[in-house]
């Protein structure tokens, strides 16, 4: 295990328990996402791992070494912040070189290493610019190169794409994934965006109210959520009584067949290849179905039309027990 967190609790001065008795193990070379809503404790947990926060209870070890009492500058972690934390009085080159310069590495070595990193983060022509002259995405890539320069044992990313617009986010996400496959440094990424977590991470840990709800591969979380929170957080979901139904597990038919319920098409939202059909059931409840464009054309769907729907797969949670999938 590259990072081991054991029974960590962090309370803030106002009494708020940000992290509540959390244990977590992160495998070497993996890219793990800590996913959760704001206030779920995911950023605090990351800062505890980095040494930027001191836990009230529990301990943290990195590569088998207990670092609970070790200050951040001696932990060998690379940390990337949501708002870049660029050294704004230094050029891109000097930002990236910072960790090497304070270690008094030879000038030629620093220069070569920075050049290599500039290439890695695709900022070759930008060495002499100041952070204020870069776009958000470029600044974040600079921050990543700065963190990688000192060859950290683990790389911690705190909502790294949170301040960027949607298109740049997606690009950087794909780029980060490729970078991780190249560099192989154990990486923990904090995000509130389930799509981002599912997209880049090998493993996802879902947090809520300072606790871990579930850890697993993205697909496992989606298909076998441990509880209602995970079910609703990792993707859109309809709830009908005790049953939880993903929008793509709702079948639309023109004729009733005994197991279907009547519904009226309220709105048809075209999202490219996918189409979201918002429906009102005969008892007034709202559900949404996810279908493909060709299905919409086949059914000749129109707003205001009466349809018959049937869930093809439902999930029912009984207390805290494992979910039961019904085909």
């Amino acid at each position: 295990m590259s990072i081991a967190v054991r029974q960590v609790t962090k309370r803030f001065a106002n009494g708020f328990v940000a992290v509540d008795n959390v244990s977590l193990a992160i495998a070497s070379g993996s890219l793990t996402a800590l996913l959760g809503p704001s206030g779920s404790g995911k950023s605090t947990l990351l800062r505890v791992i980095a040494g930027l926060e001191t836990p009230d209870e529990g301990d943290v070890s990195i590569l088998g070494e207990d670092v609970t009492g070790v200050p951040p500058q001696k932990r060998g972690v690379g940390f990337v912040f949501q708002h870049y934390a660029a050294f704004k009085h230094l050029t891109v080159r000097d930002n990236i070189a910072f960790g090497l310069v304070i270690r008094k590495r030879p000038k030629a070595e620093v220069r070569a290493r920075v050049d290599e990193l500039l290439g890695l983060v695709q900022l070759d022509g930008f060495a002499d610019r100041y952070p204020a002259q870069l776009s958000g995405g470029q600044r974040q890539r600079m921050a990543l190169a700065r963190a990688l320069a000192v060859e950290p044992k683990v790389l911690l990313l705190d909502e790294p794409f949170g301040a960027l617009d949607a298109r740049v986010r997606k690009e950087l996400r794909a780029w980060l994934r490729r970078l991780h496959d190249q560099v192989h440094v154990t990486t923990v990424l904090v995000t509130h965006d389930q799509e981002e977590a599912m997209d880049v991470a090998d493993r996802v840990t879902v947090m809520n109210d300072g606790r871990i709800e579930q850890s697993g591969k993205p697909r496992d979380l989606y298909e076998h959520p441990a509880n209602e929170f995970v079910m609703s957080f990792v993707g859109p979901v309809n709830r009908l009584g005790e049953a939880w139904i993903r929008p793509h597990d709702l079948e639309l038919r023109l004729e009733p067949n005994g197991t279907t319920s009547e519904a009226m098409v309220e709105r048809i939202v075209h999202l490219g290849f996918e189409v979201r059909v918002e429906l009102v059931l005969d008892d007034g409840r709202l559900v949404s179905a996810q279908v493909t464009r060709s299905e919409v054309e086949e059914l000749e769907l129109l707003e205001g039309q009466i349809l018959y729907v049937r869930p093809s797969r439902t999930t029912v949670f009984s207390g805290t027990a494992m979910p039961q999938g019904r085909p």
Partner: peptide, 22 residues
């Protein structure tokens, strides 16, 4: 930006160095 100081710390900078350089 206090995060500049945290970033410097995570890069191995002692408080005195952070004050002088950042």
């Amino acid at each position: 930006d206090r995060e500049m100081e945290e970033a410097a710390a995570s890069l191995g900078s002692r408080p005195v160095t952070t004050f002088r350089r950042i």
